[in-house]
Design a binder for these strands. Structure first.
Lengths: 119, 119
DNA sequence: TGAACAATTGAACAATTATTCAAGTGCTCA
DNA sequence: TGAGCACTTGAATAATTGTTCAATTGTTCA
């Protein structure tokens, strides 16, 4: 009797092809991953969470995240390049804020996933 | 006249402290990041997208993602350890499926963020 | 102008992570 | 039982990524 659940020899060409057609392209997948990759760092996540409470300058962000101004600045560049935060200069300071409405949602999803996890 | 936007000498202790109190702990932030870190890889994202269409065995997932069975298996372990997919054995095969309702939502958020980006 | 502060950048190093390959386990069926 | 398939694992290598420090840019104000 053949394997009734997953007969590779006969079905994978069809099943594989079907799934391949419905899946996003490698380029599109890469772009989506990029957003998650940005949010996958602890310091950057803290920066985002701090900015969700209102705009803040680099010095304050370094305070809040327990890191250096230089380090935060590097992370802010990555966040800017990925349309997650935006910068506005006021005199000597640069005030950062959240660029995009659904960064709120994405981060909230992350928190929800956390709270409903059972170990 | 003092800097009216961000007078560090006088305000950062207060502003910094306030933000520090409202932000999640480092441990909590790390856990949230972990979810995003898992979704930040192209192969894993493809696996998740394939599984959003229905359960699938390792062989098929390797087909769909254009990678090796071994490579996919390593990624599936990471996905399992982070409660994103679950495994069920049927005879020789192991069928994988999405473990958690809001993986749908999280991935959809990622796609939305992508589509409303302007370059 | 120049001194002081805010932020950015680049380069070097350290740490993490993905991929590969070979060897292993678990299951089925002749 | 043992041959063959499905999958997993571990170790080694290659590639990416974060952090640090020193130097640089941009701004203000005396």
């Amino acid at each position: 009797m053949p394997n009734m659940y997953c007969d590779h020899q006969k079905e994978h060409e069809l099943a594989g092809q079907r799934a391949k057609e419905n899946i996003l392209s490698t380029a599109e997948v890469e772009k989506i991953c990029a957003v998650f990759r940005v949010l996958a760092d602890g310091t950057r996540m803290k920066i985002v969470q701090a900015l969700l409470q209102g705009e803040m300058c680099v010095y304050h962000l370094a305070e809040v995240t327990d890191s250096t101004v230089s380090g935060v600045s590097h992370h802010l560049r990555i966040l800017r390049d990925n349309n997650i935060v935006k910068a506005k200069r006021y005199g000597k300071n640069v005030e950062y804020s959240i660029a995009d409405e659904h960064i709120h949602k994405i981060v909230r999803m992350g928190i929800e996933h956390l709270t409903c996890e059972r170990e």
